[in-house]
Design a protein around this nucleic acid. Structure first.
Length: 133
DNA sequence: GCCAACGTTGGC
DNA sequence: GCCAACGTTGGC
């Protein structure tokens, strides 16, 4: 059973469009112990929600874990994973929408916006996908 | 540009 | 090993 996660990126650093272009990319540069823990818990095939911070704050697409966690080549103390692009959301789900939702407002990510990788329950994942239609 | 939340650092 | 001070991040 695949798990769901939410990963966050600044569009100016690495945008959804870059992932679409690259197809698969190394998700590195995570420098937070909690986020690293989540990275290491990822399994191949887990689904990822891709969120843009900074500009329009919204979930723009989904990706899948292509390679489970391994040491960051730039700094072995940290971990990274490989991810592959999945689908763009028909309708991006904004932070405001999440906050207005009765269960999604309790997402780890909503409550702790600084955390760059956070878990999403299967129920919440379904709710997000429903909002994105 | 401000402020709140959180992580990290350094003195003890 | 604790805790205060500081820096960074991200939403508003």
């Amino acid at each position: 059973m695949a798990s769901y996660w939410l990963i966050k990126s600044e569009p100016t650093t690495y945008a959804w469009d870059d992932l679409v272009k690259d197809g698969t990319t190394r998700w590195d540069g995570i420098r937070n112990p909690t986020a690293r823990m989540h990275l290491r818990a990822m399994k191949k095939g887990d689904k990822l929600f891709f969120y843009h911070s900074g500009g329009p704050k919204e979930i723009v697409g989904t990706a899948v874990v292509a390679q489970t966690a391994y040491a960051d080549p730039k700094d072995a103390a940290w971990a990274c994973v490989d991810i592959s692009v999945a689908d763009a959301l028909k309708k991006p789900v904004t932070l405001a929408t999440l906050k207005a939702h009765k269960t999604l407002k309790n997402l780890v990510f909503v409550k702790q916006s600084r955390l760059s990788v956070s878990p999403v329950s299967a129920t919440d994942a379904k709710a997000i996908l429903a909002l994105a239609k």
